[in-house]
């Protein structure tokens, strides 16, 4: 049985197999495709997911985003954790250990 993922700053994550981020040209947006699901992504979602490479910890990613967007690290980390925990609960993510 697979383990449920609890997302923290230390988590190293990547999109699970069968979960794909792609451009939806017809509707001019970016979507996340997963079994029987389509999630339209906003700019923040795209920024977080495109950095989930299975190597960097979430904390490192949040630090990078804080610099690029000139926003407080703690706020970004908190928002990213909530966003990713929701995706993890839907089994869209894989934890790299």
């Amino acid at each position: 049985m697979s383990e449920a993922i609890s997302v923290t700053g230390d988590s190293v994550l990547r999109l699970a197999r069968g979960v794909k981020m792609r451009q939806d040209d017809v509707r001019q947006r970016t979507v996340l495709l997963a079994p029987e699901r389509t999630v339209a992504l906003d700019e923040t979602g795209i920024a977080i997911l495109s950095r989930l490479n299975g190597e960097a910890s979430l904390d490192t990613i949040a630090a990078g985003l804080a610099r690029s967007y000139n926003a407080p690290h703690s706020v970004i980390l908190k928002d990213a954790t909530t966003f990713l925990q929701d995706l993890a609960d839907r089994r869209f993510l894989e934890a790299v250990t």
Partner: peptide, 8 residues
């Protein structure tokens, strides 16, 4: 089974 099995 949250995070283990998604049920529709």
């Amino acid at each position: 089974l949250k995070g283990v099995l998604v049920i529709d």
